[in-house]
Design a protein around this nucleic acid. Structure first.
Lengths: 326, 326
DNA sequence: GTGAAAGCGCTAACAA
DNA sequence: TTGTTAGCGCTTTCAC
C-alpha cells in the first residue's frame, strides 16, 4: 500500500503538500495540485485511516446496536436510522447482541475503540455500566425502545399508553374475562403490562390471568394452551408482541375457537400475517421508523452539542382496528 | 484519555513494559505486573486502537454488507454469520446498502479503510469494481446470495434447481397454464426464472406468461391482477420471492379464486403467513442460516490462507409441500 | 505556496 | 526481565 511519502516523492513535493491537497486545505498551486493528483492516481494512493485517526480522532460512523436483528421492528428501525444518517454524511454499522449482555459489552467496547461518532442502542437490562463508560469516553449515545436509566437521551414507544388504548378497546367490545400474555424480562413488556393493568383497573376490572413468558412463538402457544384448559376460559386475549401472538393465535386456531365471537384477539406489532387471517387482527402498530429517525436526529444534535440536557421522547403507536374484536 | 505514557509514569516502569503487559507478551515480573495493573485501573487506561492499528494493521472485525436489512432472508443470514464469527473471536458490523450501488461503494470503501479482517457481501449487479479493489487491498471477501463474477468465493442458494423442483411439482399436479411472477434486475430472480423455464421445457410445456416486476408487494399484486384480467387465465402461479408472493396472494384472494382448485400457488421463501392461510403454502425454503454459516466459515478459511483457490458453493433449499397445489 | 520537523500512541527490535 | 529507541502514516505549526 502506497503511503503519503511515496506520493510526495513521485510528485516531487513534500508530504505536507500532499496532505493539504488530500484534505482540500490551505493554498496549493495549480501546478502542484496537478502533479499530486497524477501521483495519487498512478500509485492508487488511499490515506491510511488509522494514521489519520491517530492524528485527528473521530469518524463519521454511527454504531447501531440492536438486541435482535431478526426482529422486524429493528429491521425497520435500522433502515430509518441508516437513511437519516446517510443524509447527514454518516455511515452506520449495525451490531447484533442477541439479548446477550456479554456480546453487548463486547460491541460497546469495540465501537468505543473504533472511535465512532455516536451510538444508538437498544440496551439489555444489564447494559447500564458499559453505556456509562461510553459517556465517559465522550461518545454520544441514545437509547431506543428501552430505557436502562434516566439521564440519557432516549426514544421510546409509548408502551403504557398503547396498552391502555388497546385494553380500553377490548373492554369497549364487552369482553370481561381478559387474559394477557406478556414477555418476560423485557422493558417493553413490563410497560405494556402496566398499561394493560391500569386500563383494567380504571374500569373496575381485573385480568383473568396474566402469563409472562419468553418472547418466542412456542412459548406464546404454550401459554395460550394453558389458558384454554382452565375452567374459566378467557373471552379475550392481549399479546405483548408479534412472536407471542403468533403462537397464541395458532393455539386458538387449533382449538377451533371463533374470533371475535368466542374469543377476542389483539396484540402489539403488526406482522404481515395480521391481514392474512380472517378476521384480520386489531393491533397497536409500533412507530419503528419514527423511532429510528428520531433517535438518529437526536444523536446528531448531541454530537453537535454534548452539553445539551438529555431528552426522553415517547412516540405513540397507532391502534389499527380490524376485525379480531367484536 | 490516559495514554500508555501516563500509565508507565504512574507505575514507574517503561511504556514497553506496559505494552507487553497489555498484550500478555514476553516476560514480566509479578511485581511489575501488579504495579501496571494498578495504574491501568487507576487511570482507566484503554489502549488506543488507532495507534495499535497503525503499528500492527488488521482487526478482528468482519463486515457483512447486505442489500436489504429488512428482508427476513438477510436477517436470518446475519444472525448465522454473527454466531459463527463470534465463536471464532470475530465481531460483525452489518452494513445496509438498500440495493443502492452508491451506498455499496461507500461502505466497501469504508470497511477497506477500517481494515476489517474480511467482508461478506450480497453485491449489487454493479458491485464488481469495488470488490476487486478490496481484493487488491488484500481484504478477503466472499459473496452471498448473488454472484457478480466468478473467481471469487461465493455461497449461493441453488436457485435454478429450486425453481426446477418447484415447477416440476406444479406440473405434477396437472396444472398446464402456468404463469410466473419474477423479480426484475435480480440475480436470484434470473436464476429462478431459468430453472422455471428449463423445467417447463423438459416437459414440453411453456409458460403461459412471465411477469417481471420490482420485488415489492404492490408490484406483485399488480402483476397478478394483470394476469387475472386476461382471456386465458393461468391455473397456477409461481412467485420468485416472498414479497411478490404476498401481493399476488392478495390479488388472488380479492378475486375469490379458490386455491388449489381454481388456481395453484407456489413461491420461494417461507414467510410466516405461509402457514396462516388456508390452504397453507407450498414453498421452496431458502437455506439462509446455512448460507450465512457457510460464508462465514469460508471467509475464515480465506483469512487463514489467502492463496487457496476460490470456491463456489451452492446450497439447496427444501421443498415444503403444504396445500396450495392440487 | 511550500517544506522541515515534531509528534499523535503504540509496538518490536535490540541492548542492557 | 526491563528500558531505550525508532518508526508506523499522517497532519500541522512555523519558518522560509
Amino acid at each position: 500500500m502506497a503511503s503519503i511519502k511515496d506520493v510526495a516523492r513521485e510528485a516531487g513535493v513534500s508530504t505536507a503538500t500532499v496532505s493539504r491537497m488530500m484534505a482540500n486545505k490551505g493554498y496549493i498551486s495549480e501546478e502542484a495540485r496537478a502533479k499530486v493528483e497524477a501521483a495519487v492516481k498512478k500509485l492508487g494512493y488511499r490515506p491510511n485511516r488509522a494514521a489519520q485517526q491517530l492524528r485527528n480522532p473521530g469518524s463519521h460512523i454511527i454504531a447501531l446496536i440492536v438486541s435482535d436483528i431478526q426482529n422486524p421492528f429493528f429491521g425497520e428501525l435500522c433502515r430509518a436510522v441508516e437513511t437519516f444518517a446517510q443524509k447527514r454524511g454518516f455511515c452506520v454499522f449495525v451490531c447484533n447482541t442477541d439479548e446477550n449482555p456479554e456480546k453487548e459489552r463486547r460491541y460497546l467496547e469495540l465501537v468505543g475503540q473504533e472511535q465512532v461518532a455516536g451510538v444508538i442502542i437498544s440496551p439489555s437490562s444489564q447494559g447500564l455500566a458499559p453505556i456509562q463508560k461510553l459517556q465517559q469516553q465522550g461518545i454520544p449515545s441514545v437509547m431506543v425502545d428501552r430505557q436502562v436509566s434516566s439521564g440519557f437521551d432516549a426514544v421510546l414507544g409509548d408502551n403504557i399508553r398503547g396498552a391502555h388504548i388497546l385494553t380500553r378497546r377490548v373492554l369497549k367490545s364487552g369482553y370481561r374475562r381478559i387474559a394477557g400474555i406478556f414477555g418476560k424480562n423485557s422493558f417493553t413488556a413490563d410497560e405494556r403490562l402496566a398499561g394493560f393493568e391500569a386500563a383494567l383497573e380504571e374500569n373496575d376490572q381485573q385480568a383473568l390471568s396474566i402469563q409472562r413468558v419468553p418472547a418466542f412463538e412456542a412459548e406464546g402457544r404454550k401459554a395460550m394452551e394453558r389458558l384454554l384448559i382452565t375452567n374459566e376460559k378467557p373471552d379475550a386475549i392481549i399479546c405483548s408482541s408479534a412472536l407471542i401472538a403468533t403462537g397464541a393465535y395458532r393455539a386458538i386456531h387449533a382449538a377451533k375457537l371463533s374470533i371475535p365471537e368466542a374469543i377476542g384477539f389483539a396484540c402489539f406489532d403488526d406482522p404481515t400475517w395480521a391481514t392474512f387471517v380472517k378476521p384480520e387482527l386489531t393491533v397497536i402498530q409500533q412507530p419503528a421508523s419514527m423511532i429510528g429517525e428520531t433517535a438518529a436526529e437526536l444523536l446528531m444534535k448531541r454530537i453537535a452539542d454534548k452539553t445539551r440536557p438529555p431528552s426522553l421522547i415517547r412516540l405513540e403507536g397507532s391502534l389499527i382496528e380490524r376485525g379480531s374484536l367484536r
